[in-house]
Design a binder for these strands. Structure first.
Length: 504
RNA sequence: CGGGGCGUAGCUCAGCUUGGCUAGAGCGCAUGGUUUGGGACCAUGAAGUCGCAGGUUCGAAUCCUGUCGCCCCGACCA
């Protein structure tokens, strides 16, 4: 039987496509660049949404919804943003079709919109246009709003989850009375929501810090990011939090009266993570057997495969499986699982053999599989297999049924911790301090990874290095060691090392 | 958007060079039976406007033109 997943060593991008397909996460649609997110993929997104939404709400944010369409003139108001997004906007020009004999439906030339609408690539403009009416006094601030939405960026080259023309995300848009408060917000979202979510839910270690001037969001004063390393040693920007200064309040004339009665422009932040995280999740943990999911984001935690030949065996093993499932679901509510019951499925289909089922649930990434057959029942025991340690060797045999629920709950936590630890070790093993441009050029090609190097701080040098090596500055880490030096490319003074990598 | 490759059954592909019977295979799917502790087997069956639109021809999956889509490499980007 041929393997259904191309090994990473043979063809990494084919491996990624195989995982997405075989695990049933998404597929390309008939609309160019747009994907269909399938139930299993969407279930992962729902888990992500829930965890993030709780983090946002816990810090006083509320959800709202703004329109999909943005008048073209709004986008034009903030110059940097207009420039940054102009090249990838979908534009609505008409509001009606008509049926014409022989030609089917055509765009009605008489139904041209007076002002063209663009499909939001991001919502700062329409939101700040709305905030003008919502903000009059310092008492209206801070305004802490998030929206869950889809956005469209007309990309030339797309990859499922990582870059699609339409994607799902959340975008937070906050307004504050002072610069400091806005900067604290951008920082807190990055560290207490995004970094925490990446590490504690996704088990994906991230670097945190500002982007270089050349990599920041159009319209931002500065952009903070979480940056992760994928298994091909390329970097993935996994989330961004922007301090927008007064750029949008000036563009949309959002002023408030401060305590002294003077008018001031409001201070802004915006921040977002998208379905791209699912791509990051895949490329952080999965293996040549298929998807590997961290338990806290897995839609299904445990699959129980009863093993039987004769009808009596089927009856007995399925009954034992049902009892075990009930006990797992009945474990006391645990904040670690968001106070939700452990999700358990019994795979009692009889048209498939156990071996087939094992492989199928492995490719789908279910963290724990329990095997329950006649031989186990004789000993009141079961076999427990961890998805993150595949193969027969790693199976735990003879786990007494009485202890199984507690053992399994403990194992789920252990798996989550081990995945993060493994990913950290991988990243650290592929992070290097480099001190010469020659070494930089060599290492970026082979083996690749995060290169911590000195940089003179100029955009020209970053662009030159990118042109010559394809590596860009991913992050200027908050926690970089205090160490001055000389720029690897120009020899000019550097205030500290920054992280270069090839990126998605 | 530039360079390269590819579009034939749900999936992977053969057939195309050199136009000609009713367009094939494997996997998957349906039905029946035998199986079942790491991707079972046998039998029967359903399933394709050959990406789409023109053209050449007595005749086109096959030749020509255009077009759309997908994959890989660049430029751009979360």
């Amino acid at each position: 039987m041929a393997d259904k997943v191309t090994p990473r060593s043979k063809d990494y991008s084919q491996w990624y496509l195989d995982i997405v397909h075989q695990a049933g996460l998404a597929e390309n649609s008939d609309v160019r660049g747009c994907m269909v997110i399938k139930p299993h993929g969407y279930a992962i997104w729902e888990r992500m949404q829930r965890a993030l939404d709780r983090l946002f709400k816990a810090t006083g944010h509320v959800n709202a919804y703004f329109p999909l369409f943005i008048p073209k003139s709004f986008l034009a108001k903030e110059e940097e943003m207009a420039e940054g997004f102009a090249k990838e906007c979908a534009v609505v020009t008409h509001y009606r079709l008509k049926a014409e004999k022989g030609r089917g439906l055509i765009v009605d030339p008489e139904a041209r919109l007076e002002e063209e609408l663009i499909v939001r690539p991001t919502s700062e403009t329409i939101i700040w246009n709305t905030y003008r009416n919502w903000i009059q006094s310092y008492r209206d601030l801070p305004l802490l709003i998030n929206q869950w939405a889809n956005v469209v960026r007309w990309e030339m080259r797309t990859r499922l989850f990582l870059r699609t023309a339409e994607f799902l995300w959340q975008e937070g848009h906050t307004a504050h009375a002072t610069q400091k408060e806005a900067e604290d917000e951008a920082h807190a979202i990055l560290m207490d929501a995004y970094r925490k979510f990446a590490e504690e839910w996704m088990a994906m270690p991230v670097l945190t810090g500002p982007k270089s001037e050349g990599q920041k969001f159009p319209g931002a004063v500065y952009t903070l990011c979480i940056e992760a390393m994928m298994q091909d040693r390329k970097a993935l920007q996994a989330g961004t939090s922007h301090f927008l200064g007064q750029n949008f309040s000036r563009a949309f004339d959002v002023k408030f009266q401060n305590q002294e009665g003077k008018l001031e422009y409001a201070w802004a932040t915006s921040w977002g993570v998208s379905t791209r995280l699912i791509g990051g999740l895949i490329m952080t943990h999965s293996d040549d057997q298929g998807l590997v999911l961290p338990p806290r984001l897995a839609p299904l935690h445990v699959v129980i495969v009863p093993i039987f030949r004769k009808p009596e065996e089927r009856q007995a093993t399925c009954a034992a499986a049902a009892r075990l499932a009930e006990r797992l679901r009945g474990l006391p509510a645990d904040p670690w699982f968001d106070y939700e019951p452990i999700q358990v499925k019994i795979d009692d289909r009889d048209q498939y053999q156990p071996g087939f089922k094992f492989n199928e649930w492995e490719v789908k990434g279910v963290p724990i599989r329990v095997e329950l057959g006649p031989k186990d029942l004789e000993k009141d025991a079961c076999v427990v297999a961890r998805r993150d340690l595949p193969g027969k060797e790693a199976k735990l045999v003879g786990i007494p049924l009485a202890e199984a629920p507690a053992r399994i709950a403990g194992l789920l936590k252990q798996i989550q911790a081990d995945l993060l630890e493994r990913a950290k070790k991988f990243r650290d093993a592929h992070s290097y301090e480099v001190n010469s441009y020659d070494e930089f050029k060599r290492k970026i090609e082979e083996p690749g990874g995060f290169l911590w190097a000195h940089w003179d701080g100029t955009r020209e040098t970053e662009e030159r290095i990118a042109a010559e090596t394809k590596a860009t500055i991913r992050c200027i880490p908050f926690d970089r060691p205090k160490e001055t030096g000389k720029c690897i490319a120009t020899g000019r003074p550097s205030a500290g090392r920054v992280v270069f990598a090839k990126a998605y």
